[in-house]
Design a protein around this nucleic acid. Structure first.
Length: 303
DNA sequence: ACCCAGGCGGGCG
DNA sequence: CGCCCGCATGGG
């Protein structure tokens, strides 16, 4: 295990805020860490105080691993600057106080796309279940043994491996009416049309490009841009965010999605994505009354 | 038994 | 455009 020191970081709040990494990672019971597959390696991360310990099983090199951890958990984000930028009202400052250190994770674009296509009109528990079953069915399996340690895990399924499946087959894993969206997006993604270029495009253009996909609308496109491409100006507006923004900033008056986007852009600009995550997490925990919700262990790959 | 979930596409006025 | 509807499934 290697270790680095990081300030203003909470792996627990980051994981519990239900970003893509939690959809396929195996969380430690106390929220202090997570294990997740990256290609043919299994990455482990654990926080102890202000230091982050990490390690990996598999071929990933030490340098590559350090880059991965830093990127995946947004450890280069300037939180002081972000807090100052978005913490312009009491509600947001309270969210920052309660969940400070929560970062926007940077995940693989395809994996993010799949997770959030599945997320539509669905609940987080079931989203995780569906993703897990897809991983079990289509993810390449890897096994490691070193001394007394034996472990196996599966990769996240590639777009190609899902594109070849029929919608009917995908339904068997509980995907429901999203099965045809999953298949369609996987086909487009594996067609080599190159969603890599989205990283270099203007935000509005990249979003428009994503929304051409069958099953990707305004909200899912923003999730892919935020969590998959690190576009911090994206402001995914789901039912939670809509309710919270209406309640906190519009005195409970109903707003259109468009109006909420305009508001977010004007108020939080380039860090709207961070504002969204703090709103989402604090709002959701308030509603469910689970201010200190303990994460469920969804372990399949145990060490 | 019900109700709803990190929406989306399609059809309508 | 804005609104309304149906949608597979399973956990609470």
């Amino acid at each position: 295990m290697h270790s680095i020191k990081v300030g203003d970081f909470s792996i627990r709040h980051t994981i519990e805020s239900a970003q893509p990494i939690t959809f396929f990672g195996d969380e430690k019971g106390d929220g202090s860490g997570v294990a997740y597959p990256l290609g043919s390696s299994l990455i482990e991360v654990e926080q102890r105080g202000d230091s982050v310990a990490y390690g990996a099983y598999g071929p990933i090199g030490r340098r590559e691993l350090a880059v991965e951890i830093t990127r995946r958990f947004g450890l280069r984000d300037d939180m002081k600057r972000i807090y100052a930028s978005i913490g312009t009202d009491a509600f947001m400052r309270s969210a920052i106080r309660n969940y400070g250190g929560m970062r926007i994770t940077r995940n693989d674009p395809w994996e993010t796309a799949l997770c959030f296509v599945i997320s539509q009109f669905n609940n987080i528990k079931r989203i995780r279940g569906i993703v897990k079953r897809l991983m079990a069915a289509y993810g390449r399996e890897h096994a490691f043994s070193a001394g007394s340690v034996n472990l196996s895990f599966r990769e996240f399924p590639t777009a190609e491996s899902i594109a070849n499946r029929s919608a009917d087959e995908l339904m068997l894993h509980g995907a429901g009416f999203r099965a045809r969206y999953i298949r369609s997006v996987a086909r487009e993604w594996s067609d080599g049309s190159g969603f890599g270029k989205l990283g270099g495009m203007r935000y509005a253009d990249a979003k428009e490009e994503l929304m051409k996909l069958d099953g990707v609308g305004d909200k899912v496109a923003d999730c892919i841009l935020l969590f998959g491409y690190g576009r911090l100006e994206a402001f995914p507006t789901d039912t939670w965010i809509k309710r919270i923004v209406e309640h906190v900033y519009f005195g409970g008056r109903k707003q259109s999605i468009r109006a909420i986007h305009e508001f977010a852009d004007e108020r939080w600009g380039g860090y709207a994505g961070y504002a969204q995550q703090y709103l989402f997490h604090s709002g959701r925990l308030m509603k469910t009354g689970k201010r200190r919700a303990a994460p469920r262990i969804v372990a399949a790959a145990s060490v």
